[in-house]
Design a protein around this nucleic acid. Structure first.
Length: 271
DNA sequence: AAAGGCTGCAACCGCTCCATA
DNA sequence: TTATGGAGCGGTTGCAGCCTT
C-alpha cells in the first residue's frame, strides 16, 4: 500500500538518486539535448536515468518542451498570437495545451503565463472576475476587435513593417509608433464599447448615443482619452509598441475599460 | 545608492488519463 | 480486471531582474 501510494505520487523515481531541482545549467541542457537527439523525446524517466542527469523524467520533459525543443519560439507574444489566445480561450477556457497547438512554437506554459500576467491582471485592476460574462463580453467586443484593427493596420503599413523588423533586430530598442487611430463608441444595445467600424457595420445606433450622453460628460478632442472624464466617443491615442508584440494594448485600453466597468456597475440607475 | 515592492517567467507539484503487462 | 508506469495537464511557487521610493 505504501509502495502504491509512492508510485501514485511519482516519488519512487525521485528516491533512486539525489534529485536536482531548480534552474537548469548549460551542461544539463547540453546533455539533455544530446540525449534526446539520439534517443528521441519519449520515455522521459528512462532518459532521466540513462543520461546521468539527476533530474526527474518530468523535469526533463518540461525542460525539453518549454525551452530546449528546436521549434520553440522565444520572445514577445505578437498581436496575432494575442488575438488567438483571447479567441481560443473564449472557446475552450484554460485548456492551455489545446490553445498552444494553434500557436506554433508557443508552449502551454507560456500561454498560461501570458494569461495570468496580462489578462488576469487587467481583470484584477478592473475589480471583476476574469470568468465573468461581463469581462468575457468586453474581451470579445472591445479587445479583440481592437486587436484586429491593430493587426490590419500593422500589415498594411510598410513603415510599421520596417519598424517591426528594426525592433526584432534590436529588441532592446522599443520604439513607440502609432498604429492608427481607433474610434470606439458606446453601443446601448449591448451596453458596451465597440469600435466605430464594427458599430457602423452592425448597428444603426446614432453616434450621439454615447457614454458622454449618458454621463453628461464631455467628449475630448483628438488628444486621446481622458481617464478622469466620462467620455463616450474616444479617439484612441493609440501608442502601442509595434511588432515587438508586447503591445501596450492592455495599458492603452485600461482607462477605457475601467471607465466602462464603472459604467457597467452603475448604469442600471439610468434605466 | 540602497532597500523594498512588483512583475514575469521557469520550474515544480499534484492530479488524471492512458497504455500495457 | 487490475496494478503499474509514463505522459500530460492545470495550478502554484520561487526567484531574478526591474522599478519605485
Amino acid at each position: 500500500m505504501e509502495d502504491y501510494e509512492r508510485n501514485l505520487n511519482s516519488l519512487t523515481q525521485e528516491e533512486d538518486f539525489d534529485v536536482r531541482k531548480g534552474p537548469w545549467t548549460e551542461e544539463e541542457d547540453a546533455i539533455l539535448v544530446n540525449f534526446v537527439s539520439i534517443h528521441g523525446d519519449a520515455r522521459w524517466n528512462h532518459i532521466a536515468r540513462s543520461s546521468g542527469l539527476k533530474r526527474t523524467g518530468k523535469s526533463c520533459r518540461l525542460r525539453w518542451l518549454n525551452y530546449l525543443r528546436p521549434d520553440v519560439r522565444r520572445g514577445n507574444i505578437t498581436l496575432e498570437e494575442q488575438f488567438m489566445i483571447l479567441k481560443l480561450h473564449s472557446l475552450w477556457g484554460n485548456r492551455w495545451s489545446k490553445i498552444a497547438q494553434y500557436l506554433p512554437g508557443r508552449t502551454d506554459n507560456e500561454i498560461k503565463n501570458y494569461w495570468r500576467t496580462r489578462v488576469q491582471k487587467q481583470a484584477k485592476h478592473l475589480r471583476c472576475d476574469v470568468n465573468s460574462n461581463l469581462f468575457k463580453e468586453t474581451m470579445r467586443n472591445v479587445w479583440m476587435p481592437r486587436l484586429v484593427e491593430r493587426i490590419n493596420a500593422q500589415s498594411s503599413s510598410a513603415t510599421c513593417e520596417q519598424t517591426e523588423s528594426m525592433i526584432i533586430t534590436d529588441p532592446s530598442q522599443r520604439i513607440q509608433e502609432p498604429v492608427g487611430p481607433g474610434l470606439v463608441q458606446f453601443n446601448s444595445n449591448h451596453r458596451q464599447f465597440v469600435p466605430v467600424s464594427e458599430l457602423s457595420a452592425t448597428s444603426s445606433n446614432s453616434p450621439a448615443e454615447t457614454l458622454s450622453e449618458v454621463h453628461g460628460g464631455v467628449v475630448t478632442g483628438s488628444g486621446g482619452y481622458d481617464p478622469m472624464g466620462q467620455t463616450g466617443l474616444e479617439e484612441f491615442n493609440d501608442w502601442g509598441c509595434v511588432g515587438g508584440g508586447d503591445s501596450n494594448m492592455w495599458t492603452d485600453d485600461f482607462w477605457l475599460l475601467q471607465d466602462q466597468f464603472c459604467y457597467e456597475t452603475t448604469s442600471y440607475s439610468y434605466n
